[in-house]
Simulated scan of single mutants.
Amino acid sequence: MATSGTVAFRPNIEEIISESFERCGIDTQTRTGYFAKSARRSLNLLFSEWANRGINYWAVSNNTLSLTSGTSNYALPPGTIDIIDAVIRENDTDQMINRVSIAEYNQIPNKTETGKPNQYMIDRQYTPQIYFWQVPDASYSMVYWAVNQLDDVTLSNQDADVPYRWTDCICAGLAAKLSLKYASDRYQLLNDVYEKSFSFASSADNDGVNLRVQPTALNLI
C-alpha cells in the first residue's frame, strides 16, 4: 500500500479547537460563536503558560542590537521574553558578554563608567529593557539569541504558531483548559494526558547538544 507521500499535516486553529472540544465530550456541532472565542482565549493563555515552562525553541531568533556611545539602556523588541545567549561584536569579532542579576547590576559602584560592555542586565517589564556595563564608549553591536512570544491567536482560520511535533500537546493542553469551563468532570483525566504530552514534546524540544563536562587538570603534590 502506497503512503500519501506528503508531510503537510498541520491542523489550523478551528481543527485544534474541534479536536479539543471532542476530547471534552462536547459535540462540535452544538458550539456557538462564543465557544470559539472562548477557545481562542484559552489557546493564548496556553501559550503564556508555555513561556513560563521553558524555552520554546521554535520561537528562538537571532537578533542584533546596535549600541551607541554613551547610551547604557535600550528597549528590546516587542514580544521578547528572554535572552539565552549574547556576544558583543566589534569589527566582525565577537566577545562574550555576561548576564548579571538586577541585584548584581545594582551593586556596581560606578554605573556611568565607559568602555566596551562586558555585562548586561535585563529588566523584564511589559516592554523589557536591557542595561549595559560598561556604558558603550563607541558603536558596538550585541548579537543575541532571544526567546520570543508566540503569535497571538485571533481568528479560527489561522494556523497556530506551533511546529508539527507539538500538535498533540496543543490539542491536549487546550482540552484541559476547556474542561475547566465546560467539562469539569473530565479535567483530571485531560490534564494528566496534557502533562504527559507536554513532557514528551518538551523533552524532544532542545538544541540537540548534550551537556558537556570537561575536567580540569589537578596539580598533584
Rank of each mutant, 00 (worst) to 15 (best):
W166N: 02
G115Y: 05
S199W: 02
V153G: 01
E90S: 08
I88K: 00
Y194L: 00
N206V: 00
A160F: 08
D168W: 02
Y182R: 07
E104F: 02
N106M: 05
D205K: 02
Q158A: 15
Q188E: 14
V87G: 04
S156D: 15
F200Q: 03
S184N: 11
K111S: 07
F200K: 02
S141W: 08
Y105E: 01
T114L: 01
R165W: 13
K181H: 15
N98G: 01
S203V: 00
R186Q: 14
W145L: 11
D92C: 05
D205T: 03
N110V: 07
L155S: 12
Q125P: 03
I108H: 00
I130G: 02
R124I: 06
E90M: 01
T114G: 03
L155V: 03
G115W: 00
V162G: 11
V100L: 06
G208R: 07
A103I: 04
K181Y: 12
K181Q: 15
D152C: 09
S101W: 11
D152V: 12
R165L: 12
S141Q: 14
R99L: 02
P128T: 01
Y144I: 00
N106S: 08
V100F: 04
Q119H: 04
D123G: 02
R99Q: 07
Q158N: 13
L189M: 08
I102L: 14
D137G: 05
N106I: 01
I108F: 11
Q119Y: 05
N157G: 13
S141T: 12
R165P: 06
P136H: 05
E113L: 14
N191D: 13
V135R: 02
T114M: 13
P136M: 01
D205C: 00
Q107H: 05
Q95A: 10
A160R: 01
R99E: 10
M121L: 08
C171K: 15
F132T: 06
P117H: 01
C169G: 08
R186D: 10
